[in-house]
Write a protein that binds this DNA or RNA. Structure first.
Lengths: 345, 345
DNA sequence: TTGTACGCGTTATCAT
DNA sequence: ATGATAACGCGTACAA
């Protein structure tokens, strides 16, 4: 009675009547193997149902066949961000097909971001990482490089980077939102932005400001940390101004929904008294009242593209910079014609 | 000039003047090492800054030092579920401290759940998995066992299981919501439930029904897939009934927020015409209008407890069943005294 | 093409 | 009871 042992490369070699080394060459599509041997080897491998042992491969090559994503510390904020989940799904779509595994690490107050990257690099738990939420002068680029890992950044960093990037022009999304509002006759428009330290938050804010002034509007920008709490607070602040805006462009749906709540709480009607746009086009936005006008980005496609770029880098490819399709504005009910502000705002 | 090479166990052995094997025994706290040698070995290891190579260890022990979570196919639904993120954070809190890594795998229409588990097991990419969203007669239990992995389930399965479980009595949360509504004078109450196939969805529905009849109320239950879309549709159906409910208990915040939207869309005021409760106490619920009354579960603590249980199982512990603290009802603005239904509902 | 050393810990076997 | 030695896991890579 034979125990079911997993076939090793030695079994394949025996089966094909060649040496272990030759099998390795044949299976890795490398030169120096006659086509006859190659065929016999491949046949033997498939006969035996052989698949390489990731563990053994890992030990001899020093690679881990895993890629990582480090989630920044603000768990609550990211927890509420459906974007992130779609991104993960997109990454996994590609990784799983290439035998890579996706490792998730969470930075905490007790284990800061840099330590978390170090932890993943230390024993090469991952070969590469996906860097999200780029910050101004982001130290992670140099850190990851120093740690000897490959990486891909979501968006193009503002510092020298040896890594590939995959970007979406969210500025275009913001511009279309502003254009939409301008066409509706709004003049005093506000932007509830993400953290100023985050590159995409900043770029959205810049796009907002330039689009608004190009259209001859009077723009205001308030920074937040992307949370519903700060989104709500920013909305209160904006609506308390004597020259309160008639439209607010939020940099995510979450804050926009909170913004609708604040407006209602203050007795304003959306969109009659205040127009609101979101960003990310989350499912919930379609079912709140009024349904949210939002900028739709394809986070899953973004993830897939990033994963492919990272795999390419892992197999020795040179850094590339890819720009994905522009996001599009989905107009629903939360935006409407501008009307003079009522005194009760 | 010496190249910076990572110290291996052989270096430690040399340094301590003993053999490789003995170092391994000493570092793994196994008998057969004199206290003198043990001390010298530990000193040498810390002198050299030696840490075991996970890869080498992995090859010789057959373990991967990784644990996995498989995300079921409905990405959109889970994407919107902040619960999941907190769970992940809780898992990672514990895994990262014990040198484990958290692997995330996503099942897709193209790669179904069972295949995904198989993929993780095939080359032992993970040693154990956390099984979430238990279903009735869940086949994953047997599958995972057959695949030779350890596991922990979130909630206690309704089938024989060799695995530890960590549970939260969400029924208690539902009961407190029903009690709250009953105290406010509601009589016709509805529950917008999760999928009937999911154990926790079913248990919440059962808790709802029994609590409602115990309180002498007239309960209705509608099943959904947890998405905002189905939550909204269920709400429409309920509010179209001639004997429409005056209060609805949703099995997540997401659907509850959509429910508020639907009520408003139909010209009903919350809570004057309709009281609404959610489940999970997400951040957004605090900022919608009216702020959502919701059942708060500590997903992060749940994750940590599950991770600990899994680690325990990996180190040979026997299956245990732990019950965490009961969730609590957070009363906000979306629930209020019952009032006779207006004809416009 | 083949043989074999190598990566690095773990563990069974053997000697003291 | 201590400790050394060597085999093992499984691919990879280089010398022969």
């Amino acid at each position: 009675m034979t125990v079911h042992r997993r076939p090793t490369i030695a079994d394949v070699a025996r089966h094909a009547g060649v040496s272990k080394g030759l099998v390795s060459y044949a299976l890795n599509d490398r030169p120096g193997v006659s086509s006859g041997s190659r065929e016999r080897i491949l046949a033997a491998a498939s006969d035996l149902g052989w698949t390489p042992s990731v563990r053994a491969r890992s030990l001899s090559t020093g690679r881990s066949f895993a890629c990582g994503v480090v989630i920044g510390r603000s768990t609550d904020v990211i927890a509420a961000d459906p974007f992130f989940h779609s991104l993960i799904a997109g990454l996994e779509d590609v990784f799983s097909q290439s035998g890579q595994v996706l490792v998730l690490a969470v930075a905490t107050p007790g284990r800061r971001e840099a330590e978390t990257y170090r932890g993943l690099a230390e024993d090469r738990r991952v070969d590469g990482v996906v860097i999200t939420d780029l910050r101004a002068a982001d130290e992670r680029i140099a850190l990851v490089e120093r740690l000897g890992m490959k990486a891909v950044t979501l968006g193009r960093p503002d510092v020298e980077s040896p890594f590939s990037s995959v970007s979406v022009d969210d500025g275009a999304g913001i511009r279309s939102a502003v254009a939409h509002l301008a066409a509706l006759g709004h003049r005093r428009v506000a932007h509830v932005a993400g953290p100023e330290a985050m590159l995409h938050g900043r770029r959205r804010a810049e796009a907002f400001l330039s689009a608004a002034s190009d259209a001859g509007l009077e723009p205001v920008v308030v920074d937040t940390d992307f949370s519903a709490a700060e989104g709500a607070e920013a909305t209160h602040r904006l609506l308390s101004r004597p020259d309160r805006p008639t439209a607010i462009v939020y940099s995510n749906d979450h804050m926009a929904v909170a913004g609708i709540g604040v407006a209602q709480r203050r007795g304003l009607r959306v969109p009659d008294d205040l127009s609101i746009t979101g960003f990310d086009d989350t499912e919930l936005g379609r079912y709140v009242h009024p349904a949210l006008t939002s900028v739709a980005t394809d986070a899953r496609a973004w993830g897939s593209a990033a994963a492919r770029a990272l795999l390419d880098a892992l197999s020795g490819g040179t850094a590339s910079h890819r720009e994905l399709d522009e996001p599009t504005l989905i107009v629903r009910e939360s935006t409407g014609p501008a009307s003079p502000p009522s005194p009760r705002g």
